[in-house]
Amino acid sequence: MKPVVGTTPRVVRSEQEWRAQLSPEEYAVLREAGTERPFVGEYTDTKTTGAYECRACGAELFRSDTKFESHCGWPSFFDPAESDAVLLREDRTLGMRRIEVLCASCHSHLGHVFEGEGYDTPTDQRYCINSISLKLVPAEAE
């Protein structure tokens, strides 16, 4: 994975440590910027209330109240949990120009963000995130 220019991750592990912690599928997406197949992810259609954390380091990334149905095959959010929860970086792989979304805490790959697609959301952004990059922590019942 290319380093994010100008930032230092708060969570640092060697690639051997990441491989020991993550499954091969998780490692391929989180550390090698892979993509899971559409419509198969654990959280694609989840409606559970709670917080979505980075599967690699546990940092809170998104909240269920910003998740929306985009029918794209991956969980979609219109805003991160905090303004500094994620980092954005230009991605020119696959002959396209996209904006990659990374966990600000450990710099693991999460997915991509798209703008101007016409979704009725407060930000007109779609953070298209791999389910395998996330861990849902359900809200406690009151």
Rank of each mutant, 00 (worst) to 15 (best):
Asp84Glu: 03
Arg63Leu: 09
Phe39Lys: 07
Glu32Phe: 04
Asp84Leu: 01
Asp65Lys: 08
Ala28Arg: 11
Phe68Gln: 00
Asp91Val: 08
Asp84Lys: 03
Trp74Gly: 00
Pro38Arg: 12
Thr49Ile: 15
Asp45Thr: 15
Glu69Leu: 10
Ser70Trp: 07
Leu30Gln: 11
Asp91Asn: 06
Glu69Thr: 11
Asp79Ile: 08
Phe77Thr: 02
Ala51Val: 15
Thr66Pro: 07
Thr35Ala: 09
Tyr52Ala: 02
Glu82Ser: 14
Glu26Val: 09
Arg31Cys: 05
Glu26His: 08
Glu26Ser: 11
Tyr52Thr: 05
His71Ser: 13
Tyr43Gly: 02
Glu82His: 12
Arg98Gly: 06
Glu82Lys: 15
Arg37Cys: 02
Arg55Tyr: 09
Leu88Ala: 08
Gly41Lys: 03
Thr48Ser: 11
Leu30Val: 12
Phe62Ile: 08
Gly58Tyr: 07
Pro75Asn: 13
Lys47Ala: 13
Arg37Leu: 09
Trp74Arg: 00
Asp45Phe: 15
Asp91Gln: 07
Phe62Met: 07
Asp84Val: 00
Cys54Thr: 05
Arg63Ile: 11
Val29Lys: 04
Thr46Phe: 05
Asp45Tyr: 15
Ala81Ser: 14
Val86His: 02
Gly34Pro: 11
Leu94Met: 12
Thr49Met: 13
Val29Phe: 07
Glu42Thr: 12
Val29Cys: 05
Gly50His: 04
Leu30Gly: 12
Ile99Val: 14
Ala56Tyr: 05
Phe78Ile: 06
Arg92Leu: 10
Thr48Pro: 10
Cys72Thr: 14
Gly73Cys: 06
Ala59Asn: 08
Leu61Ile: 12
Leu30Ser: 12
Ala56Asn: 04
Tyr52Gln: 02
Thr49Cys: 11
Leu61Val: 13
Val101Asp: 07
Arg55Met: 10
Asp65Arg: 05
Phe78Ser: 06
Ser70Asn: 08
Ala51Met: 11
His71Ile: 03
Lys47Met: 11
Glu42Cys: 06
Arg37Tyr: 03
Ala33Asp: 01
